[in-house]
Deep mutational scan, measured.
Amino acid sequence: MPSETPQAEVGPTGCPHRSGPHSAKGSLEKGSPEDKEAKEPLWIRPDAPSRCTWQLGRPASESPHHHTAPAKSPKILPDILKKIGDTPMVRINKIGKKFGLKCELLAKCEFFNAGGSVKDRISLRMIEDAERDGTLKPGDTIIEPTSGNTGIGLALAAAVRGYRCIIVMPEKMSSEKVDVLRALGAEIVRTPTNARFDSPESHVGVAWRLKNEIPNSHILDQYRNASNPLAHYDTTADEILQQCDGKLDMLVASVGTGGTITGIARKLKEKCPGCRIIGVDPEGSILAEPEELNQTEQTTYEVEGIGYDFIPTVLDRTVVDKWFKSNDEEAFTFARMLIAQEGLLCGGSAGSTVAVAVKAAQELQEGQRCVVILPDSVRNYMTKFLSDRWMLQKGFLKEEDLTEKKPWWWHLRVQELGLSAPLTVLPTITCGHTIEILREKGFDQAPVVDEAGVILGMVTLGNMLSSLLAGKVQPSDQVGKVIYKQFKQIRLTDTLGRLSHILEMDHFALVV
């Protein structure tokens, strides 16, 4: 994948999101292997301009796509893939009243899908469409860049269908997702969380590099694949309309690839034109409109599966009536509230959605109805927002919020430890010299600072030695090549209790 991002070429006709291997024109390309080798690009942008032909009021008969309808489940399912879809609609009884809503608040519980998330729908649909058009064949390999849930859905379907599955996901995604993927037989590649989507090191860039190296491999490409919004247009939206008897006044959905909100909203605009569509985008993402909503100094966020630093091709923002931004604290607070007060075992993005819903639905009156999409299960986040310690460490809970008995030293300040200034190293000294210094002084790690004293990161003896043994660096290389740029900081005025929580999850903390 090139470091400079080429513009994806656009073909003359058809839909841009065809499933299957992508040609340089962004659509299915038939021909000899030699032709494909000559024409197939190194990668295709996940934010390529959409060429979708959908228009409100256009006859369904003019759609270029294969459409399906929700099917009634048999008493005995032939395999677990038949437990994807037909998820329950559940009334939220307490939270709406707590925040003064007059309307009825309903939750579409997508964590009841077989793999635990709304992404099971698009995973199965992308595979079925690729099999139907002859792209996927027995023994082929599926590769997908994902925040985890699409990966789980694909790995689940691949396990049943017999495909090899490789999932490329950023490091910030939970260990629970990784464990589930491994249990399903998927191979996992992790990428830096802070890598831009168009960087060769991003999950998108690495996935395309693997595709170019592995024979008979395919990126189904949830960011561009029409099967993504079509899955929701054909099934999720129809289920909502049936469950609500066609009567709903507002739908609120958090947005990642945009397939969920695009597919549902398009069908609702056709069948229930008075329904307002509300999009939820986390602070630090750029999906919301108008652009002024996205202006923030924050560039990272903890909530998973929603928000991006690019506009995915499948996201149709014209069908969203209003956007709201959400933050991590309210997302996790509301997710825990949904679990504790409503018994809905949902993930953090569901918290984002409901946090926005109780604001947006203030305009609705008694007798009206708001539906929220709860995308995934708490299963993926047992060591994250479900953990009091994690919430404390991230600053989303305060010590006084917890009532468990603490040891005698818990409320003492870090400054009472009488710490001395640490050994520091410059980023320009060599790895070999740094190892000598650390061994001589008896230290395992040291902060790396520039000549102005600005902290650049941390270097550890173990990481340097393993990097040297693996051949990633040489003793003569500058130590700046092996620094940890993500590390926890703590102030002298913070409590030892807070430091204790940090050290339970990290090997060190830097006192500043």
Rank of each mutant, 00 (worst) to 15 (best):
I142L: 09
I122L: 02
R276D: 04
S217H: 02
P16G: 09
S175F: 08
K211F: 09
K39V: 08
D35G: 11
A38R: 08
K94P: 02
S63V: 06
K271I: 10
G96Y: 07
S32C: 02
I122P: 02
G20V: 15
D133C: 07
K25V: 07
S73F: 12
P74C: 08
E110G: 02
S202G: 06
P2N: 15
R132Y: 02
S254T: 07
L241D: 02
R276F: 09
H66L: 11
F112E: 02
E213S: 06
L154W: 02
H203R: 06
A183G: 14
D245S: 09
H218V: 15
D221I: 02
A183Y: 04
V206M: 12
N212V: 09
I264P: 05
Q7A: 10
E37Q: 11
V255W: 04
K271P: 05
A155T: 10
G151C: 04
K267S: 02
F197G: 06
R164L: 08
N225R: 06
K271S: 13
Q242P: 02
R196G: 09
A195V: 13
G139M: 05
D238F: 09
L77G: 07
C109H: 04
P64R: 04
S227N: 12
R276T: 14
G26D: 02
V204S: 02
K211W: 06
L248D: 06
S23F: 10
T191G: 02
E40C: 02
V10G: 10
G20S: 07
K137F: 10
H218F: 10
P273R: 08
D129S: 10
T262G: 07
C272R: 10
T141V: 11
S174C: 02
P12L: 04
K267P: 04
R196C: 08
P59L: 12
P145N: 02
I80P: 04
I127F: 14
S227D: 15
I152A: 04
R161E: 02
V160L: 05
P215A: 08
T193F: 07
K75R: 02
G256S: 02
P215M: 09
P2G: 11
S202T: 08
S32W: 11
L101F: 07
A253E: 08
R58L: 13
H66V: 12
W208E: 05
K72T: 02
G258E: 06
G185S: 02
N212I: 06
I219L: 08
A186K: 02
K36A: 10
A71W: 02
C275M: 15
I264S: 04
R125I: 02
M169V: 07
V189F: 02
K36Q: 15
P215S: 07
E37H: 07
A60D: 05
G148V: 07
A69W: 02
S217M: 02
P74Y: 05
K97G: 14
T150Y: 07
E187Y: 08
K269V: 02
T260C: 08
L28I: 14
R190F: 02
C244M: 02
E104F: 02
E34I: 02
V252D: 11
V90L: 06
H66E: 05
T236Y: 02
T236W: 02
E176W: 04
I167V: 04
L220A: 07
D140Y: 07
K97L: 11
L136K: 04
E37V: 14
G115E: 11
Q222F: 05
C103S: 02
S50R: 06
K75Y: 07
D221G: 07
L136C: 13
K267Y: 06
L81C: 15
I143W: 04
L105P: 06
L105Q: 02
